[in-house]
Design a binder for these strands. Sequence first.
DNA 1: TCTAAAACATGATCTAGGTCATGTTTTAGA
DNA 2: TCTAAAACATGACCTAGATCATGTTTTAGA
Lengths: 240, 240
Amino acid sequence: MRNPDPLQKIPLFTLLSERDRRKIASEVTEAHYGKGEYIFREGDPADYFHIVKEGTVKCVKSSSDGKECTLKVLMPGDLFCCEAAVFDGAPHPGSAQPMGDVSILRLRKKSYFEVLRRNPDAALEVIKYLGQRLNEAQENAKVLALDRAEQRLASLLVNLASRSGVREAGGIRLTVHLTRQDLADMAGITVETTIRIMGRFKRARVVSGTAKRIVILDLARLKHLASTTSTPCSKRSPAA
Amino acid sequence: MRNPDPLQKIPLFTLLSERDRRKIASEVTEAHYGKGEYIFREGDPADYFHIVKEGTVKCVKSSSDGKECTLKVLMPGDLFCCEAAVFDGAPHPGSAQPMGDVSILRLRKKSYFEVLRRNPDAALEVIKYLGQRLNEAQENAKVLALDRAEQRLASLLVNLASRSGVREAGGIRLTVHLTRQDLADMAGITVETTIRIMGRFKRARVVSGTAKRIVILDLARLKHLASTTSTPCSKRSPAA
DNA sequence: TCTAAAACATGATCTAGGTCATGTTTTAGA
DNA sequence: TCTAAAACATGACCTAGATCATGTTTTAGA
């Protein structure tokens, strides 16, 4: 049984005319990937838009000397490769890797642009979306440029809580599964440092759990830790 | 004597119909700022697009504990505040400061969006532009996350060379005037470190000069320094 | 259920680059 | 042209966090 309009719920497609959306939908193809594979690699030609249908995907960039950083973790509904897809002929500036089993919808970017030309409201929506992404990217750059490890990790967890957190007895659980290594790659620090800081957070009852089940116990405290260098977590006693 | 169509040469406006461009032009107002002033501050309401007409402007973000980082230096023709301007009602996520005397054109964002709705090609152009900016921002984040001070500074200088460099006998001179502090704020390092590294670059005949006159003498070498951690500048002898 | 491979954890160093202190040089404006 | 304020420069020191080394615990799949 095929979904007649798989794009209806994806923000960037809802504003299209129904006719155009159907047209686009008929051109969308679905693909599946597993851990260890690449959806695309840095330098590959960028002819498609990608949409996460199920699972999570990470956008990765690597430096010339082998190190990697994760720019963003994408969840169902997120559109990706938008950075590259807007250039004509330019290759992907980063890679996309599944973090487990995922299904991806892909759409030839040429088709999408044609349709956007006929749907100005949708085009403005895309402008808005890119503006938000740009904003996030710059906020991220600020954190990387100015904050120290503990603050970076705290900021990251706060962001993740709002993007993938579900309320639960005693805290906010992250639905994305992130190992310490994943967190490290996102915060621009090493695994060891991440483990140590997460250990402190744990002892202070700010977060709990590992990869499969990370729970934010004290969001307020975490926000505070993200925004000040003056009271690092280590200095405080583990809750009276 | 007033320029009848000041927007004609600005990339994001050339694709508008002449009629719309004139309409927009009639709504554009010009403003002047001097050193030490703010064009807008973080948190201010963002109702306008801004275009640099003359001079240079820097986009700045500051962390909660006072430190500042410079996200980008904007030159004549650059459009800014695009990050914020796309949200409805959201405030500016950063400040804009002139780096000397500047003239700025400002345009109510509502007007621009109305016009974009009627000019799909121009809207796609904006999408493209934002995609590029997003790309730059992510590239920047990568550098901040993975590279060390020397590489960051080298990358920065390479970028500046391509954005504001003019060929000159013996090298590429930067038309923007940047103090060591400015470079530091862009690279996410301290002034002292910047001065020391620039000193090394100078001794190695890779760059020369200060603020008013920075010249890149050896772009190839600089590119190499930007992309590898294995042969830092200090280790090499200052050219045989 | 067992087992190998991930993931998590912790301690012992080491160092890039931050911080502080104290000049010198350049620049701008009176 | 003089002078105060920026900007540039350099040394001494110190720490956050990287690196390396060596476990333990958890997870997945046979």
